[in-house]
Each structure stands twice: as C-alpha cells, then as structure tokens.
Amino acid sequence: MSLMRLLARWPIFFTFTVLCLVAQENYPFSNFPMYSSFAPKSYFVYLADATGQPLPTFRFGLSTADLKKVFNSKRQPLFRLEKGAAKPDSATADRVAGAEVLRHLEKLPAVRRQRPSLLPGLQVRRVDLRWKSGRIETEMTTIAQHP
C-alpha cells in the first residue's frame, strides 16, 4: 500500500499523530510525555501536619502525583530568568515553590470546607530519590510550613 493510499485510508491517524506531536500539552491534544525519559534521580512531595505526621493528600482533594505537578509548575518558572539575573539555588527555589503550594492549597474548595482547618503548621516535604549502584537512596527535607 503506497503512502498516499495509506494517508487517504487512515486520515485521522495521521492528522492526530501530527497534531499531538506539534500541539504537545494543549488539551485535548497531548504528546503523552509521561515517562518519556528517565534519570538516575527523581523526587516526590507530600504533606505533613505540624507535628510531622504525614497527612493523606486525598483529604486536600488532590493526589500526591498532582501535588508534585503543582509544586513543579511553581518551581520551574523560577529558573526562567531574565538576562543578567542571578539563578536561584535549588534549596531557595524549593522554599519559594513550597510556599506557593501552600497558597494554592489554601484556596482549594476541599480544603476550605474542612473544620478544623488542615492548614496551621501544615508542612510541604520533599523526598529526593537517587539511584546509586543498583540501590535506591532517599533523603527527606521540609521545604515549607504554613504559619
């Protein structure tokens, strides 16, 4: 079957393939980049109360994976700098993004509905994962805390 005949027979397949690759992450299109590359390090973020006890993320109306995506969306822009501006160090970027996550949580309807409030003393914690000679090592840091 020639390419032209295939194009005529599978118009949606070819059109959607091109549109998804070009439009990338623009709903309803996506290039489906999840797990498209792997590195020997990764991390995740979770929430803990004032005493450091973990809190189920579902109580905030979102998943732990979403929490990381929100954190990442606040953190990444900090590294898009104007010419001549100093690059923030990783720990500072974490602190700023962590505080932004707390502000994001404050506004969520699922959080505002809860009594007593989940917010006082709420901690955002980051766990770094590293692949070292066939073993996974972890390191936890508290990056932000609600007053």
Partner: peptide, 14 residues
C-alpha cells in the same frame, strides 16, 4: 484511528 494515534504518539515521544 484516534486510539492508535495516541499510542503511536506516546511511543514516538519516548
């Protein structure tokens, strides 16, 4: 075709 395209795109993106 739409379903096939989503899988194919995911493979290409990788």
């Amino acid at each position: 075709q739409a379903i096939a395209a989503t899988y194919f795109v995911a493979g290409l993106t990788k």
